[in-house]
């Protein structure tokens, strides 16, 4: 046989990766249902659920009122009773209204029943700054990392959105799946064949020698941009996309830091008690003292004012500055 190699991936928008994951899982498992605001005929705030109502019907694709506590509670209860609900919480800021059933019930059910019951509900929500203002822009995923019984994932590419969401819908217990708003305009290659990305495995997006940068979600692209800029200055960055925040892939991060000797953590959320603090502490516990720094949003709310929003959250220039400081490099002349 001659001819070109058969393509194994397909380019798709981020929302299409989500839609494909949900549609495949709904076809595969009749227990999967979708609950949320505007998930039906509207197709989701980002059209990530386009056409699911038509394919699966109103019993499995249900529009809910604006009632996050009940939405998460109903998802958790339905999960405990044997369904696999995907509950769409439009913005992560509103997940706070549903934290009681998620944290106090779903995350505890397996433990408190001695393993007799579980609540495999998937909460899909959207984080991050994109002009929506102080109560619609937050990245609160670090809050959820310290809840035993809860897994937290955050993709940075359409392929991972697809693979991680499918994995979440097959997990034994509750999972919070976090998209970043700025990922929706992006497109990328996703596998043609049906596949699942294991939860708990980080991905090295760029190999480097001088510093390890651990980040997740949309900040991955910002960090990769900074790594490009730094390469021109002779600084070689290894960029790790965490993908899974709980559990953390400490082995991959530690092995990288062992090679580079330095760790910078970058996140869009708050640095205080943030993802980076946990990453750095776990790496220290694993390999001993390291040289590290963290970068997150300013300790301030994220305004809808573009000037203030941009001022608040990390960008490639700030990442590069933090790397230079960590590596003891002077700021290059411009």
């Amino acid at each position: 046989m001659s001819g070109e190699a058969k393509a194994t991936t397909e380019r798709m928008f981020f929302r299409q990766a989500i839609r494909r994951a949900v549609a495949e899982e709904m076809r595969r498992n009749p227990a999967v249902i979708l609950l949320g605001q505007d998930v039906g005929a509207f197709g989701g705030s980002y059209r990530e659920f386009d056409g699911l109502l038509a394919e699966f019907g109103a019993a499995r694709v249900r529009d809910t009122p604006v009632a996050e506590a009940a939405m998460v509670g109903i998802g958790a209860g339905a999960a405990a009773a044997g369904l696999r609900p995907l509950v769409s919480i439009t913005y992560m800021d509103f997940l706070m209204l549903g934290l009681d059933p998620l944290v106090n019930y779903a995350a505890k059910l397996c433990y408190k029943t001695g393993g007799r019951m579980t609540a495999p509900v998937v909460i899909k929500t959207t984080a991050g700054a994109k002009g929506q203002g102080v109560a619609h822009s937050q990245c609160l995923e670090a809050w959820l990392m310290g809840i035993p019984g809860l897994k937290v994932v955050a993709p940075s590419t359409p392929a991972d959105a697809y693979g991680l969401l499918k994995a979440a819908l097959r997990e034994k217990g509750p999972v919070v799946y976090v998209d970043h708003k700025r990922l929706f305009p992006t497109a990328g290659e996703a596998p043609l064949a049906e596949s699942v990305s294991p939860i708990g495995v980080a991905e090295i997006r760029r190999h480097g020698r001088d510093v390890t940068i651990a980040t997740h979600a949309y900040m991955t692209s910002i960090v990769l941009k900074a790594a490009d800029d730094l390469a021109r200055e002779g600084v070689s960055c290894e960029v790790i996309d965490l993908r899974s925040l709980a559990p953390l892939d400490v082995a991959t991060i530690s092995a990288s830091v062992r090679r580079t000797g330095r760790l910078l953590t970058v996140e869009e959320g708050q640095a205080t008690c943030g993802v980076g603090v946990e990453v750095a502490a776990r790496v220290r516990e694993s390999i001993g003292a390291i040289s590290s720094a963290r970068l997150g949003a300013l300790a301030a709310p994220v305004s809808s004012n573009p000037v203030l929003e941009a001022a608040c959250i990390p960008d490639a220039a700030r990442v590069a500055t933090a790397v230079r400081a960590l590596c003891g490099r002077a700021v290059p002349d411009r």
């Binding site: 249902i33 019993a59 499995r60 506590a69 009940a70 998460v72 509670g73 109903i74 998802g75 958790a76 209860g77 339905a78 999960a79 405990a80 009773a81 044997g82 369904l83 609900p85 009681d100 059933p101 106090n104 019930y105 029943t113 007799r116 019951m117």
Partner: peptide, 28 residues
Amino acid sequence: RTSGFFGAHAVVGGNISIAAGVALAHQT
């Protein structure tokens, strides 16, 4: 569950929405 006792939940009001989820599972 074997006795039809799906369970107690000590957060006051916490089981109300959970119960609706169980009912949704029955209905679905």
